[in-house]
């Protein structure tokens, strides 16, 4: 799964304004951005720069007020809320800063929820959930509850859950913020494997300078504008 790839997501002139009238605030200005499969892309910028808003729009969580987003060349910006939900379920995997695992469900059950949302057979789903957890290195924690796991382990459960729908695109919000240096690098290595070995597009919003060297591309955003998109070394 190496070599140049067609864009999975293409943002064309995407802008977003919060509020109306005198209180209106422009979070994004005419963003153009391609995201390709097999790459790890970092969205970086200071707080309030618009990077999270861009992640919401690219992830079909938020409708832009201008411009269009194409997923495999199909426009998705104007889909209804339920249609966007169905799209996220099939094509996207999300990893959140605070993991957002159900505390009363085991690791396997937390992953199984994603299969359940997709109406998959639960028996097969359970096997797949366990396989995913083994794949992210949690074979020993299949039946553990989140409160018995470290931050890094919870992060891996969240990653396994995000992978349950076999998504083309993984979107992560500050995935290393709550992890120590070793845990952060471990998570990034996992993201790189998912991108490079499985061809997924991985989009990460981060402030963490420790992981810059592990990205394929870095997009810097300031005041709602993309200021540069260097390829990481």
């Amino acid at each position: 799964m190496n070599g140049p790839r067609a864009p999975v997501i293409r943002a064309v002139g995407v802008g977003h304004v919060f509020g109306t009238g005198e209180t209106a605030f422009t979070a994004l200005h005419a963003i153009d951005l391609d995201i390709r499969g097999g790459e790890v892309l970092l969205l970086m910028g200071p707080s309030g720069s618009g990077k999270t808003t861009l992640l919401h729009i690219l992830g079909a969580l938020l409708t832009p007020t201008s411009g269009e987003v194409f997923l495999r060349e199909k426009p998705i910006a104007q889909l209804s809320e339920e249609e966007r939900g169905a799209l996220r379920l099939k094509r996207f995997g999300f990893i959140f800063q605070s993991y957002n695992l159900f505390p009363m469900l085991t690791a396997t059950e937390n992953v199984l929820v994603a299969f359940d949302l997709a109406r998959a057979d639960l028996r097969e789903g359970r096997e797949k959930a366990r396989a995913l957890l083994r794949q992210v290195g949690l074979g020993e924690k299949l039946d553990a509850f989140p409160n018995a796991m470290s931050g890094g382990q919870k992060q891996r459960v969240a990653i396994a859950r995000a992978l349950a729908g076999d998504p083309e695109i993984l979107m992560a919000d500050e995935p290393t913020a709550a992890l120590d240096a070793q845990g952060g690098l471990g998570a990034m290595e996992l993201f790189r494997r998912l991108a490079h070995e499985q061809g997924r597009a991985v989009v990460i919003v981060t402030h963490d300078p420790r992981i810059l060297s592990l990205a394929d591309r870095i997009v810097r955003i300031e005041d709602g504008w993309i200021v540069n998109t260097p390829e990481a070394s």
Partner: peptide
């Protein structure tokens, strides 16, 4: 572990029209 995982994940998922779901388990927990 990874080999086993790959084999299981490669199988096509079954989708059924009528099925039990996890809502009861989540509700109870």
């Amino acid at each position: 572990d990874e080999a086993l995982a790959s084999k299981i994940l490669a199988a096509r998922p079954s989708v059924r029209l009528w099925r039990t779901d996890l809502t009861g388990l989540i509700a109870w927990r």
